[in-house]
Amino acid sequence: MKPAAIDTLSECDARRIARHAQAADAARFLHPVQQALLHQRGWLTMLAPRSAGGAELPLPQAVRLEEAVAAIDGSMGWVLTLCAGAGWFAGFLAPELARAIIGTPRVCLGGSGAPTGYAEQEGAGYRISGCWDYASGAPMATHFTLNAQLRANGQPLLDEAGAPRIRAFLVPAALVDIVPTWNCIGMRASASHSYRIDGQWVAREHGFAIDAAFATAAGPLYRYPFYALAYVTLAANMAGMASHFLQLARQCIRHRRHAGLGLPLLEVPEVAALLRDKQHAFAAARTHFYAVLDASWAQVAAASPLDANAMRSVQASSLALVAIARAAVDELYPYCGLYAAREDSPINRVWRDFHTASQHALLLP
């Protein structure tokens, strides 16, 4: 049998993901079948450099795959996105270390971006301590990324502006203690727990700078700005969950009647118009989002860096898509009935996942 392409979601794989989504939500972590699929398809290393053993997919292909998975199960799409995104950092590590990490059996990189720890210079490396929140996929992570404030002799190191110097690190999971703090109403199976490191030493090469000027892999993927990459990957997840909600909402509305008019809800002109308008607005925003993403990628692939206007356009199209998705979900939910409020219904799970994921700091309106 021909293996599935790494940048597409086959109907068979979509069914496998969907079949176990409810059980994963109840268990508060991805089902073993879902975890196995992430590894078998190589999705967790799809943004890692080819030179390190990753797939180094063009960004628009990776983003479309992330949306497709999120449209089946929001938690799995989120884990794929955040962990594959952490794998992207391998393009900024020393090549030998990157190969060793990406070559780890069942490799999965998790982590957090907040600089809520400290890295004390010690010999040829750093001694790291701190606690970080929201590491999606934490139970299956073989390595963790983190940002830490640099210190020397117990004193903070400052940059030219007098602010604390921050450095990113990638460390083995053996140095990390997971703190089970994830208890949100949605995205339950993402298992986005906190993690702690207590005075563990790592060699200097485990630190890196997330900057195209310091990329160690040559491809255009590592010249694409980090924040632009973050916006498009998060927005694609929101789009996937919103499209799933729209599909399920239409089914709910089809089976309801208007109490006052005695008509099926889909035959009430105002309801039919609302559903149509939300679907059209979402489709238009999604089309614009991908047009901007594809154009920005073509520019970077042609060795032309994104200027400030181009990066603002990527951010604006991402946030516009999320805003229109929010409006669609929130305005259609009241027409879906008590079935949509049942915790064990698929539409309720999608609604919970969507609203939990929408709280990400970068997605603020």
Rank of each mutant, 00 (worst) to 15 (best):
M1Y: 10
D7R: 03
R15T: 07
I17D: 00
I17K: 00
A18M: 08
H20W: 13
Q35H: 08
W43D: 04
S51D: 12
A52K: 01
G54Q: 02
A62T: 02
I72K: 15
D73V: 02
A84W: 03
A94G: 11
A94T: 11
E96A: 15
T104E: 15
G117T: 05
Y126E: 01
R127D: 04
G130H: 06
D133L: 10
G137H: 01
M140A: 12
T142Y: 08
N153K: 15
A161Q: 15
P164N: 11
I166P: 01
T181E: 10
R188D: 06
S190W: 04
I197G: 11
F208D: 00
A215C: 08
P220C: 06
P225F: 04
A228N: 08
L234Y: 13
A239V: 06
A242E: 05
H244G: 09
Q247T: 12
R250M: 09
Q251N: 07
I253A: 04
L263K: 12
A273F: 08
K278C: 13
H280F: 10
A281R: 15
A285W: 02
W297Y: 08
A302M: 06
S304R: 15
L306F: 05
N309D: 13
M311W: 04
S313P: 02
V314N: 01
V314W: 02
S318E: 07
L321R: 05
V322Y: 08
A327S: 14
G337C: 03
